[in-house]
Amino acid sequence: MNVLIVDDDKIVSRSLATILSVQPDIEIAGCGSDGDEAVSLFDELAPDVLLMDIQMQGRDGLSAAEKILASHPDAAIVFLTTFADDEYIVRALKMGARGYLIKQDVSTIAPALRSVMGGQRVLEGEVLEKAVALGAGISPARDEGALAGLSERERDVVRLVADGLDNGEIARELFISDGTVRNHISAILAKLNLRNRTQIAVFYYRNCMG
């Protein structure tokens, strides 16, 4: 996939370009630094995915996305931001953004982009919870089929991994030990034929979200 990156912090955009470009299935189409550049570069480069910040000097990411989607209604736009603001989330999802990620764990970005290319909408855990609570067109999980082979406790662990919790946080949430969490994760990986935590999260959002 060809990815256009737009962020007003040039260090961030260069770092993202470096990290993503080592993926065998990702090419960096270009980089921009504000919403106006996002609009012009999208028209020029026609990327498969636009990965864009929201708060930027000049035209912001949400305004740029609205302009792009007006001309390219099938554009795959994924927001990558530090702000899980309710208004931003609702506006982004209602306009048709394919993803809303929080700048935390860069290792989740490439799998998220692959899910978007596969036709999925990808939301970071905190964003997903807010979107459901706000009624922003997102339904609660429908995981009975996809997770049918897991125990009830293993399903709980999958949901918490998808929410971005680490082992210690999951242990405290479920009142179990860290070792038990590790055992559950090992069992989940084996049963779902997955390799790591990131794949657990991607599997959940791809197969269990309405």
Rank of each mutant, 00 (worst) to 15 (best):
N2T: 10
L4S: 10
I11F: 14
I11E: 13
V12M: 15
S13Q: 03
R14A: 15
R14D: 15
S15H: 12
S15R: 14
L16N: 03
L16K: 11
L16H: 01
T18A: 07
L20Q: 01
Q23A: 12
P24G: 00
D25L: 04
D25I: 11
S33T: 14
S33I: 13
D34K: 08
D34F: 00
G35F: 00
D36A: 02
A38N: 06
V39I: 15
S40M: 05
F42A: 10
D43V: 00
D48Q: 11
L50W: 10
D53E: 14
I54W: 04
Q57M: 10
G58F: 00
E66F: 04
I68Y: 00
I68V: 02
A70D: 13
A76T: 07
I77L: 03
I77F: 08
I77P: 09
V78D: 00
V78Q: 02
L80H: 12
T81D: 03
T82R: 04
T82S: 15
F83Y: 15
F83V: 11
A84T: 13
D86F: 11
I89K: 04
R91Q: 15
G96D: 00
A97N: 02
A97T: 05
G99T: 06
L101G: 03
I102W: 03
K103Q: 13
D105I: 08
D105G: 08
I109H: 08
P111A: 10
A112K: 02
A112V: 05
L113R: 07
L113F: 08
R114V: 00
V116K: 05
M117D: 06
Q120H: 14
R121N: 12
V122K: 09
L123F: 07
E129R: 15
A136T: 11
G137P: 02
G137T: 11
A141L: 14
A141W: 14
A141S: 14
R142M: 05
R142A: 12
E144R: 11
E144Q: 13
G145Y: 13
G149F: 04
R155F: 06
D156K: 13
V157L: 05
L160C: 01
L160T: 00
V161R: 09
D163S: 15
D163L: 15
G164C: 06
D166G: 08
D166H: 07
G168W: 09
R172Y: 01
R172A: 11
E173R: 15
E173I: 10
L174M: 12
I176R: 01
S177E: 04
S177F: 00
G179V: 11
V181P: 00
I188M: 10
L189W: 05
K191P: 00
K191H: 04
L192W: 04
L192N: 04
L192V: 08
N196G: 06
I200F: 08
A201E: 11
A201C: 09
F203E: 06
F203D: 05
F203I: 06
Y204T: 02
R206W: 09
N207H: 14
C208N: 12
